[in-house]
Simulated assay, not measured.
Amino acid sequence: MRLWGLLVCLGLSLAGCATTPANVVDTGERYSSMSGGVEDYRLGAGDKVKLTVFNEPTLSGDFSVSADGSLSLPLLGDMAVVGKKSSDVAVDIQKQLANGYLRDPKVSLEIIGYRPFFILGEVKTPGQYPYASGLTALNAIAVAQGFTPRAERKVVYIRRAGSSSEEAYRLSPDLRVWPGDTIRLGEKYF
Rank of each mutant, 00 (worst) to 15 (best):
L3R: 10
L6W: 10
L6K: 05
C9F: 12
C9M: 13
A18P: 02
T20Y: 02
P21F: 07
A22K: 13
V25D: 09
D26Y: 12
S32A: 15
M34V: 13
S35D: 14
G36C: 10
G37V: 06
V38I: 15
G44L: 09
G44W: 08
K48W: 12
L51R: 07
L51P: 05
T52W: 03
V53D: 00
N55M: 12
E56A: 08
P57T: 09
S60W: 00
F63D: 02
F63A: 00
D68K: 12
G69I: 01
S72M: 09
L76N: 05
L76D: 05
M79A: 05
A80M: 10
V82S: 15
V82D: 13
G83W: 08
K84H: 11
S86L: 06
S86H: 13
V89G: 03
I93C: 00
I93M: 01
I93F: 03
L97W: 04
G100D: 04
G100S: 03
Y101K: 08
L109C: 06
L109Q: 06
I112N: 11
G113W: 05
R115F: 05
P116F: 07
I119W: 04
E122I: 02
V123T: 07
V123L: 09
G127C: 09
Q128T: 13
Y131E: 02
Y131L: 00
T136Y: 02
N139C: 06
A140R: 13
V143F: 08
A144F: 05
T148R: 11
V155S: 08
V155F: 09
V155Y: 08
Y157H: 15
R160P: 01
R160G: 04
R160C: 01
G162K: 11
A168Q: 05
R170F: 03
R170H: 00
S172Q: 14
P173F: 02
D174C: 00
L175R: 03
L175Q: 01
R176T: 01
V177K: 01
W178D: 15
P179V: 00
G180E: 00
T182G: 03
I183V: 06
I183R: 04
R184E: 03
L185R: 01
G186K: 04
E187R: 13
F190M: 07
